[in-house]
């Protein structure tokens, strides 16, 4: 299978899903009007990855902004990874947020409360 790489835009994040190293990164802003369209290829890629995952899968979420339309898609993505975790790979999530960005920190905690995956909250100066 191939890596999934998408360059970020004004409304969509940079995507780097690396199947060789088992590292899935979302970075930037996710504020498209219709997020389903954007997230569909990401879900498909994870479905594919699920058939032969690395023993360890690291998910790096480095979002500066996301809208409520994306929040549901991000949850679905985590649910997919949650299923993956019970199989051949151990999934870990790193949730990055900028200093003083309580809203983004809380958003990470919200997912942490819903999703049964280990979350690490990482505060950084700038994403």
């Amino acid at each position: 299978m191939e890596n999934l790489t998408l360059e970020g835009s004004a409304k969509t994040p940079t995507v780097r899903f690396d199947c060789e190293n088992g590292v899935l990164e979302l970075k930037g802003r996710s504020i498209p009007e219709n997020s389903i369209e954007f997230y569909k290829p990401l879900n498909d890629w994870i479905d594919n990855y699920a058939s032969s995952p690395k023993p360890n899968t690291v998910v790096d979420i480095k979002l500066e902004y996301f809208n409520t339309s994306s929040s549901k898609c991000i949850l679905d993505l985590f649910k997919q990874l949650e299923n993956l975790n019970s199989g051949d790979t151990e999934v870990k999530v790193n949730w990055y947020f900028e200093e003083d960005d309580e809203d983004m920190e809380e958003a990470g905690e919200d997912y942490q409360a819903i999703i049964n995956l280990p979350f690490k909250m990482i505060e950084v100066e700038e994403i």
Binding site: N34, I36, S69, C73
Partner: peptide, 8 residues
């Protein structure tokens, strides 16, 4: 549920 328009 998400609507087809992508609103949640």
């Amino acid at each position: 549920k998400m609507s087809p328009k992508g609103t949640a």
